[in-house]
């Protein structure tokens, strides 16, 4: 895996020279690029790559305001959305992003696929791969599944959420939303509150926010604090009031009951009384605080309806921004390589 990334960087350096030599259409600025041809997590991204994605998303957002919301950029490219876990928002968002870039897309939900007939993950992947798609957008309940895929197959892999590990496009759209409200990311105080144990959104967000220089506080019940959180360079607390004090951004996380195989708190009512975000509590944050939630929301569990629909809430904006950010990611990754032009497996491993 390491070797692949290094080689890709070397090749990328070489093309830059070529492009300068035969540049047909003048580009204007130095082209920048993502270093990997997959997006597996925020973990593998540098701060300048994050900025590149957010800047590109800025341009993509305008396309959604046109009468014809479509550009021909990914014409003839095939993108497969492979969702082994239920998802409405993320899958729809990826599909819209792909269609706006003119890619040919198909979505496979496991409920309707041969996975229910007992096929293994690797066999499913190999069969899809045999039809040579250019990109696979994948969600899976096992952490690391897209990483396995990236090693096994030739297509570009985009992680749309793997187990409790990462959800990189969510963190990117969150950062995009914050930046569009605050004008910057560095130096902001971001409080992330809720089910810290099961949240891939948390992990991706912490990684991203730390890379771009934001201060992160995380807060949740002691039973839902994963070990070693402090190693991520974040402040950990079990008091929501402490977490909210002077915050620029509040991110609420969903209580993921479907991932809980035990009792982590006595009752939903008790959870809401101790960790639910209410208008009264939110007064501790900065007056211009924005409230975010990756969805789906459990109203009355982690967030009060009054706050979710209140003035500082940017929750629906996050959803609209998701399309622009995913368009940016697909565009930037698509330049890396195409299935047809790729040499026979020589570069991997």
């Amino acid at each position: 895996m390491k070797a692949t990334v290094q080689q890709a960087t070397v090749q990328h350096g070489a093309t830059r020279v070529n492009e300068a030599a035969n540049g047909h259409i003048e580009i204007g600025t130095t082209p920048r690029a993502l270093r990997s041809r997959h997006l597996l997590g925020i973990d593998g991204l540098e701060a300048d790559e994050i900025t590149l994605i957010l800047d590109t998303a800025e341009a993509m957002k305008e396309i959604g305001t046109r009468a014809i919301k479509k550009v021909p950029t990914l014409r003839g490219r095939t993108v497969v959305n492979l969702f082994f876990e239920p998802s409405t928002r993320t899958r729809t968002s990826f599909e819209i992003a792909e269609k706006r870039l003119s890619a040919d897309t198909l979505s496979i939900a496991t409920a309707m696929s041969s996975v229910t007939k007992g096929e293994s993950l690797l066999d499913t992947i190999r069969n899809i791969e045999a039809m040579s798609p250019d990109m696979i957008v994948m969600r899976h309940s096992s952490s690391g599944a897209p990483h396995l895929l990236a090693r096994m197959c030739q297509s570009t892999i985009v992680n749309a959420g793997d187990g409790t590990h990462e959800h990189p496009t969510q963190a990117l759209l969150d950062a995009f939303t914050i930046r569009s409200h605050k004008g910057r990311l560095d130096g902001l105080t971001v409080a992330i509150i809720g089910d810290l144990m099961h949240s891939r959104v948390l992990r991706s967000n912490i990684l991203l926010l730390r890379k771009v220089g934001a201060d992160v506080r995380v807060c949740g019940p002691a039973t839902l604090l994963p070990a070693g959180l402090d190693r991520f360079g974040v402040a950990v607390t079990t008091s929501i009031d402490e977490a909210l004090e002077g915050a620029d951004v509040v991110m609420m996380l969903r209580i993921q009951q479907e991932r809980m195989d035990g009792h982590f708190f006595p009752s939903v009512r008790e959870y809401f009384s101790l960790f639910g975000l209410t208008r009264e509590r939110l007064k501790r944050a900065k007056p211009d605080v924005i409230v975010m939630h990756p969805g789906p929301m459990n109203r009355g569990v982690e967030i009060d309806s009054e706050v979710a629909d209140g003035p500082g809430s940017v929750i629906l904006e996050q959803v609209s921004n998701g399309v622009a950010v995913r368009m940016a990611v697909l565009y930037l990754l698509a330049g890396r390589e195409t299935a047809a032009e790729r040499p026979e497996r020589s570069e991997s491993e």
């Binding site: 093309t15 830059r16 492009e19 082209p31 341009a59 698509a334 890396r336 390589e337 032009e341």
Partner: peptide
């Protein structure tokens, strides 16, 4: 280009 940086979109 088989492998290359994408031009910056503005």
């Amino acid at each position: 280009n088989p492998v290359g940086p994408q031009p910056v979109v503005r």
